[in-house]
Simulated scan of single mutants.
Amino acid sequence: MPVERVCARAWAALIIAAAASSGCTSTVDGLAVRHADANSTNVRPLRETQLDDVLLSVAQLNGIAGATEMKVVSTGTEMADNSAAVSDPDCLGSIFGAEDLVYGFSDWTAMVDQVAREPEDGNEHWAKQTAVLYATQKSANDFIVGCTSAWHDCSGFSVAVDDGMTSSIWLIEEVIVADDVVTQVIAQEDSDGWECQHALGSVANVSVEAIACAFGVDDEAARMAKAILAKAAKQ
């Protein structure tokens, strides 16, 4: 399957479904995803200068993760490129966040990305939060719908990741859509239970991506995403 279809494989189907559907729900590969205008009609479009304000503080991240010593270790405004590190680039979006290949087919205009973890090498918590600005609210929601389809297609498969220094195998679990947030868990093989929950959502013209990793995750990424979306809605 061509790499160009990462998170964009559903665009053609999305256009057809949008034309045929009514109300506030789209079905993509059997998954119901609420349109952004159903829960953000009173939210003004955000500006680039507001993106930093929608991210969670490190204190909030620690609280959600059940940690006390996580610190921000990186902040950026550019997408990453780990496409060469995964055995199946079509599943890049399930494994990594804020990837250039994943967002390349949307009309995003600005982004901010932040990673936090404990400072020691053997950290027990790792969190990544990303807010992405689009030209329109529809574009933000379309991105979520397209990625939901791509994540769904990768469910139940294992993907090898090799960055040239370390290698690992990750099992991709099923997609869950609840409270307008899409989540998926990936579990690293032979790691004593290290796994990550990945979450997506949108409000107004902003999409939110959150990843929370630990030795046994609960719903931390979903809680991160909901909190970021709530902050964005108040801007």
Rank of each mutant, 00 (worst) to 15 (best):
M1K: 11
P2M: 04
V6S: 10
C7K: 05
R9K: 11
A12P: 03
A13W: 03
L14M: 13
I15K: 15
I15A: 15
A17K: 15
A18M: 10
A18Q: 14
A19D: 08
A20M: 10
S21N: 08
S22L: 04
S22Q: 12
S26H: 07
S26Q: 11
V28N: 10
L31S: 09
V33L: 10
H35G: 11
A38G: 00
S40Q: 02
N42P: 01
N42Y: 08
P45K: 06
R47A: 14
E48M: 05
D52F: 03
L55R: 08
L55P: 02
L56N: 07
S57T: 15
S57H: 00
V58M: 05
A59Q: 13
L61H: 01
L61C: 01
L61R: 07
G63M: 06
I64Q: 05
G66Q: 07
E69W: 01
M70P: 02
K71R: 14
V73R: 12
T75K: 15
D81F: 03
D81V: 03
N82S: 11
N82M: 07
S87W: 04
D90E: 09
S94T: 09
I95P: 03
F96M: 10
Y103A: 11
A110C: 03
V112T: 15
D113M: 09
D113V: 10
D113L: 09
V115T: 14
A116S: 14
E120F: 08
H125L: 07
A127N: 08
Q129D: 08
V132F: 02
V132N: 02
L133R: 08
Y134I: 00
Q137T: 15
D142F: 01
F143L: 12
I144P: 03
V145K: 12
S149H: 13
A150F: 00
W151M: 09
D153T: 09
S155P: 07
S155T: 12
G156K: 05
G156L: 04
F157M: 13
A160C: 04
V161R: 01
G164M: 05
T166W: 07
S167V: 07
S167G: 14
S168P: 06
S168H: 07
W170V: 08
V175Q: 04
A178S: 14
Q184V: 05
A187Y: 06
Q188T: 05
D190S: 13
D192S: 13
E195N: 14
A199T: 03
N205Y: 02
V206Q: 09
I211A: 08
A212S: 13
C213T: 01
C213F: 02
F215R: 11
G216V: 01
A222S: 13
R223A: 12
K226D: 02
A230K: 11
A233Q: 08
Q235A: 14
